[in-house]
Design a protein around this nucleic acid. Sequence first.
DNA 1: AATCTTTGCAACCGCAAGACA
DNA 2: ATGTCTTGCGGTTGCAAAGAT
Length: 300
Amino acid sequence: MGRRPCCAKEGLNRGAWSAREDKILTNYIKIHGEGKWRDLPQRAGLKRCGKSCRLRWLNYLRPDIKRGNISMEEEELIIRLHKLLGNRWSLIAGRLPGRTDNEIKNYWNTNLGKRVHGDKIHDSNKQCSKLERKGSMESNTGIKPETHPAVIRTKAVRCTKVIIPWQLDNQMANKNLLPVWDCDSPCCSPQQEDNSCGFLKDFDINELLISGVLYSDQDKEINECEILVDGDVQSKNMSSSCPEHFPLLSRDEAKLEDSMDEAAIRPQNWRASTDPFQPNDALDLTTLASFLNSEDEWIS
DNA sequence: AATCTTTGCAACCGCAAGACA
DNA sequence: ATGTCTTGCGGTTGCAAAGAT
């Protein structure tokens, strides 16, 4: 018995969204909030797949979305983050307030990727077809994807819960490493006097916070044997119950966080709030860029 | 001006993984 | 323990607009 398809495809609108559909979706989410995407179209009266609604909202309709005009600072940041993280678009987007993973991915594919690779690719490739341009470019033209000497490959080991000793918890709170807990869930606040429901964390936070050896060709094999915590997933885990994300850090994230903390430049809200109607704290791009400049030193 | 080609971006798809029953 | 649901991610596709011929 296979899984139920996300929606019945028949009779659903596809392709570009109309202004009317946008308005319906926006109004619905303003009233009822995000989530329950599967049932949303029916409840909102949209002839769309829930997945499509989610995508439309996240990539286009959210009020905190910035569109177009990616600044030089942002561009620089994307390049550096891509160098560091590879195609982890959601992670990259998480560091660029108001930008979506899809937008950054598109921007990379159409501008930066070409520019970064383009220096090495000569005019002979300018004529390559759209097909080659898309994905198969590397294999069909013999152009290898840029090797990322320092791209951190996180492994799919996920943290579902972690246990932080109370003292460490306090230390982290003092260092402002813990998020602002603003949800109503009784289990949300680690600072509750009754710590009974706890703040379970089952890994050694110190271990995670150690700046890791970056992924490189030489230590590929070693790294492949290592257990890393997948950074982008922690947000998923935490966001299910809490709107802010506790930084369960992948090594790359940990490294970023660590250094940012050392430099006292860590943005307080480094992930976009999941509450679309709460404006994000602006991330100081200049600061982050300067941090990433120092990042180059680790890589080399 | 007409046609063809390329580009950019929104949207779609399949998959993975945690949550939940 | 198992199967299904829900959500999120990254890769890919489709199409309109822009540019070239």
